[in-house]
Write a protein that binds this DNA or RNA. Structure first.
Lengths: 189, 189
DNA sequence: ATTGCTTTTTGCCATTTGGCAAATGGTTTT
DNA sequence: AAAACCATTTGCCAAATGGCAAAAAGCAAT
């Protein structure tokens, strides 16, 4: 829980009372490796904040292949589709890569916090904005790089993920087969 | 000029007086094919709205290759880097693919409009937000598609550009060589 | 240590794409 | 019409990646 408070306070100040109120509304959930946090098509009931573990976000393309969009690791807020415009689509699946621990708020409670805690909406707004600008990927850089370059970028950008995420998921994230990634990896050493 | 007013009014209402004020501040510029609208490293002096023509946005990667980030066509606002966070980077070049006509405002005038015309900032804010969400590219879709799929997407998404943009630029935008695109094109027919 | 299960690596070959240069086709200028 | 200048297509071969299956390595449970 401290992780969450600490995270939030980076984006604005809150007094003890406010923090207490938020903490009272929060619950802690754990789920195990390979459990879904949510599945495509289902209604999302929670706002979550991941405190431990790694989650994979993926979808199925028109050939039925599972494509990994990205990974979520510790200290990231997971807002549902209709709260942060279209970032998390209802067509996506979120599944735990490792055992996870998460703080969640029901949508009802979340709304109450928004109504009672002055400054909360501006904090969330800031988090969302930062999230947005992180997600505005530099399309052309990606597309004009070959597999090796994309992998090098990946390990540089997400050094903590490399050893916790199975190679097949990284390969899918990087848009190549796992054999190719295995070979690329070999050539880099 | 009408095009600009029409565009802006989609995002909010303005009265005659306000429109007049804006029109008085605006100037029309034309530039020819292959002229630069701006070059990397230079200070951008204007806010522009493209009424006719197509502009190409590109940069040089670390191998010195010219990479096309995207195209701007009619009815698009071009805000400079420090006004719309980092969308237009000072490391980018904007060059006309066809003869262009553009409405421009000096930064000074633009500020004055922001200060005097009530509702102007909210209109601009909406435009920027829309721009943002258009630019949040679906990274994984792109990267997991092969050349043919990317080209088919392109002609579907920008049907008006296909015949006005040289093949080499489209190829660069799609992250492939122009020979490859030429072959892909041939196979599609 | 052995077994069973999962992940990663490797081999083999097909397909795609890149790199480069020449040929072709189109457009503009004179 | 001819010449000059581009843009596009094509040919040739090399490099990168995909597809598939088997082998190897890693890990967990007994």
């Amino acid at each position: 829980m401290e992780k969450f408070i600490e995270f939030v306070l980076q984006f604005g100040n809150l007094n003890k009372q406010q923090i207490d109120l938020i903490v009272r509304k929060a619950s802690v959930v754990e789920f195990r490796k390979d459990e879904y946090y949510w599945e495509a098509g289902k209604i999302v009931r929670y706002i979550g904040f991941l405190t431990d573990g790694v989650i994979r976000v993926f979808y199925y393309n028109n050939k039925g292949e599972e494509i990994t969009r990205y990974f979520i690791d510790e200290n990231h807020l997971i807002l549902s589709g209709n709260m942060v415009d279209e970032i998390y689509k209802p067509s996506e699946y979120l599944s735990a890569i490792t055992d996870c621990k998460m703080i969640i708020f029901s949508k009802q409670d979340w709304k109450e916090i928004l109504d009672t805690v002055i400054g909360w909406d501006s904090i969330i707004q800031k988090i969302v904005t930062r999230h947005h600008s992180e997600k505005i990927s530099r399309r052309s850089e990606l597309i004009s790089q070959d597999g090796t370059e994309r992998y090098l970028d990946f390990i540089q950008k997400f050094p903590t993920l490399v050893n916790r995420v199975p190679l097949s998921f990284i390969a899918s994230y990087l848009g190549m087969t796992q054999s190719s990634l295995s070979r690329i990896r070999k050539n880099i050493l």
